[in-house]
Design a protein around this nucleic acid. Sequence first.
DNA 1: CTGAAAGCGCTTACAG
DNA 2: CTGAAAGCGCTTACAG
Lengths: 335, 335
Amino acid sequence: MSSRPTIKEVSKIAGVSFKTVSRVLNNEKHVSEATKKRVEEAVAQLNFRPSHAARTLAGRRSFQVALIYDNPSPYYVYHIQAGAQEACARHGYRLLHQPVDMQAKDFVASVMALVDEAHLDGLIISPPVADSIELLEVLDDRNIPYVRIAPGVRREEGRSVGMDDVGAARELTEHLLAKGHKRIAFVRGPENHASSSDRYAGYRAALEAAGVQHDPTLVVQGNYTFASGLEQTDKLLGLKIPPTAIFAGNDEMAAGALAAAHERGVDVPGVLSIAGFDDTDLARAVWPMLTTVHQPVRELAEAAADLLVGGDGGGRHRTLDHRLEKRDSTGPAAR
Amino acid sequence: MSSRPTIKEVSKIAGVSFKTVSRVLNNEKHVSEATKKRVEEAVAQLNFRPSHAARTLAGRRSFQVALIYDNPSPYYVYHIQAGAQEACARHGYRLLHQPVDMQAKDFVASVMALVDEAHLDGLIISPPVADSIELLEVLDDRNIPYVRIAPGVRREEGRSVGMDDVGAARELTEHLLAKGHKRIAFVRGPENHASSSDRYAGYRAALEAAGVQHDPTLVVQGNYTFASGLEQTDKLLGLKIPPTAIFAGNDEMAAGALAAAHERGVDVPGVLSIAGFDDTDLARAVWPMLTTVHQPVRELAEAAADLLVGGDGGGRHRTLDHRLEKRDSTGPAAR
DNA sequence: CTGAAAGCGCTTACAG
DNA sequence: CTGAAAGCGCTTACAG
């Protein structure tokens, strides 16, 4: 590329040794104010930018971490990137976005290749990769720092951030109960997602606490997709005594549930209430807008990055607040 | 970090000079098959990964390019990242994802800082950043290679990839005309987006070709958001003689249009047809599913990356195919 | 508070 | 086809 100024040229202009320039760039102690100022002026004058490659090669750290994800949801990925990016920038770190394929044979090897090639100082691992025991063990082995987002396994080990899925699902179910619903169906997410079972557990806990008899025919299995939400809801609406409310495990499935209801001419929320989970953009782009739980995705990633590169060493786990968003898709029970 | 093997350790095991190892790693000519094989075995045995920082510092190239974007659509960003990433990986390049804020004072400086710090070999620039004259001029000045995606200005200059927005909008409008619609409204996107005016031009061209009188009251101004689509559609439906079809400039606004129709109890597509543009995930998550134009976002990014790092030097511009997706939100005109 | 020496792990010319 | 020397632009110990 184009020739750039180096630390030596800066030092010449500032009239100091290049070692002193290095000190100023790294904000080290023991530099007189006057010297510091001259160096900074020279930096500005030359529009000098230190070579990241040189710093990495010479130094003990690369000031580079990676965000690892294998997630089909653009919304989730977008916000998790944004949150992690902001925190990293604040602490002077560069963030690499690394999509991976957990099904690939060389999945772990490919992550380690990145760690080595880029001299990474650490990793931020989002779900579902956060639950890859295989990866975690290699990282522990090699002593690579990492922070997990919303882990489902080994929750107490290592550092992580998350939210209370059980409690949130419970609150949402309580909201439906308070509206007079008794026959509340639940569309589960895929088996291998920790959030699926957590949300289901919250649903069950709320029913039990309210003394509502659990009806197994009202619990159906989806896989977090629109199609599965539509299909399972259609099945539920075909029941002899259909539910008056449906709690879908995520917004995608709730959107599918809405479509199924519209298809059959079932009024929402007049005859059927529908709720989702996550509060993605989709929740406000369907009609009627979805009652759902706001998952603080961006903030989770930010908190994870803070734990990794923030340097305050404060704490190993953080649980962030969720928020129940009551919108138009839920209403009083008709019966 | 953990101590990693270096090129010298590999050379010891392979029984050659480290220079020869370097040759093998870079696939250079003039290495005997036998030597090459021994080196490769040593690399595998040590699980050696070359230091990216060292290669960058010593070499003329960093094998690193960045994708620049300032786009609020998670869907768009997700797919553009995926496409660019794949092509870069195929050519042995690393891709940095760089969100920027075009409104920020130091926007251009921040991009150039990345270019310098990371020794970037080039940039992929997505809209709307692709139309920042200020950035383009600095890049041209410094001779930094770049490829633009869907540029709206200086379309013939430099290298770029895109699709035919005008033609696609025309086809979509023709689809509505073929269904017997005469009063077709158009919800425009924001003024400063090239795609807005292109799509509007296609709409106008189709009407004109069909000999349908242009009615200015049927053209309203949105800004690509759900809210604007809802608001403008509500206005259109309040007209003395409302349109029988609405062509929204993108899917987000089309979703808003659907909500407005549902709100008023207007049947879609029985009484009102609604079409979008882009074919984002949203198009298949609303009810009824949107008739729209599929924009090949992923492929555009892939083609852009190929142009930048593919090395075939073939061509400066590529126009990719779009596809009209006829779904359930459009039907025959009622009147 | 400031500096001279050594070296990070590679690639680039230059030889042979 | 293979190798020895120099150097990329910084940081790390070590001095003073």
